[in-house]
Structure formats: structure tokens, C-alpha cells
């Protein structure tokens, strides 16, 4: 299977050769789509990973052990649920209602409806929505 994954490197882990591990230890095919990793700064790596599903899962567990946060990417945006305050400001610009507040006033995101317009990225006041693709 093919899976797009966003790796988040905390500042103190930016020197870890994670891609090397994915290829050498797990024999995965790694296609780097975008990356920004600087020495001693928070960084990210967006990659399309190809391999057996179980192997990818194991590799992701390995990444987590190395303090690298992994996010499976299914749309052009990624919502950080820790940062989101569920205000609803993003829903104002979402013309297809992919972003909406449910009856508990909690933000929901329907990836199937999303048109990848990314207007929500700039509309989010707490910068909890990231443009990943």
C-alpha cells in the first residue's frame, strides 16, 4: 500500500536519520514530497511511503519511539486537535461544509467533501490547521 505521512520532528530530534531507518531497517520505499529540517529547529518531512501495511505500522511505531510524531495524511490540511479551540472560524470559509461544528459544538472534518482550497489554513485564528500537501 501507499500512504502519505507527515513526520514532525521536535527540535531535539532533528538529527535523527529517520528516512535511513525506514529504508534500511524496514525496507520501505520512501518518496520525499516536501521537507524542512534544520539543525536544532523543529522540522517536518512529508513523504509517500510504500510497503506492506503491517511493516509501515511497525516503522511508524519505531518513529514514535524516536520522539518523531507521525500523522497519516488524507487531505491537503491537517487539524491539530490539541491546538484547536473549536471556535468555528474556519467553517466560515469552507464553502462545501467539509468543516462544521457538530451538536456538541465540536469541530468535525469530512475529508471526502474537502476540495483542498486551504482557505481554512489562513482563517484559523489559533493556527491549528496546517497546509500539508
Amino acid at each position: 500500500m501507499k500512504q502519505i505521512i507527515l513526520f514532525d520532528f521536535p527540535r531535539e530530534e532533528s538529527r535523527h536519520p529517520i528516512v535511513n531507518d525506514l529504508i534500511k531497517i524496514y525496507d520501505l520505499s520512501v518518496n520525499i514530497l516536501r521537507a524542512s529540517i534544520d539543525f536544532n529547529a523543529r522540522g517536518f518531512l512529508l513523504a509517500e511511503i510504500e510497503g506492506e501495511e503491517e511493516v509501515i505500522e511497525k516503522a511508524m511505531e519505531h518513529a514514535k519511539k524516536c520522539n518523531v510524531i507521525t500523522n497519516y495524511v488524507e487531505s491537503a490540511i491537517l487539524i491539530d486537535e490539541e491546538e484547536c479551540v473549536n471556535c468555528g472560524a474556519c467553517t466560515a470559509v469552507c464553502v462545501v461544509d467539509a468543516l462544521y461544528l457538530d451538536e456538541k459544538a465540536t469541530l468535525q472534518f469530512d475529508t471526502d467533501k474537502c476540495l483542498d482550497c486551504k482557505l481554512c489554513v489562513t482563517a484559523c485564528p489559533v493556527r491549528a490547521i496546517r497546509d500539508v500537501l
Binding site: 473549536n86 471556535c87 468555528g88 472560524a89 459544538a105 465540536t106
Partner: peptide
């Protein structure tokens, strides 16, 4: 409710303040 009518036209609504919080 997410939708209101303004001058006869259906318009989407969105909050800025968090009811959940």
C-alpha cells in the same frame, strides 16, 4: 443552526467564539 436568511437569500453562518470552551 448554521444557515439563516438575509434579504431572502440563504446564507451560511459561522461563530468566532468557542461555545465548547
Amino acid at each position: 443552526s448554521g444557515k439563516i436568511r438575509v434579504n431572502g437569500k440563504e446564507v451560511k453562518t459561522a461563530p468566532l467564539s468557542s461555545l465548547k470552551k
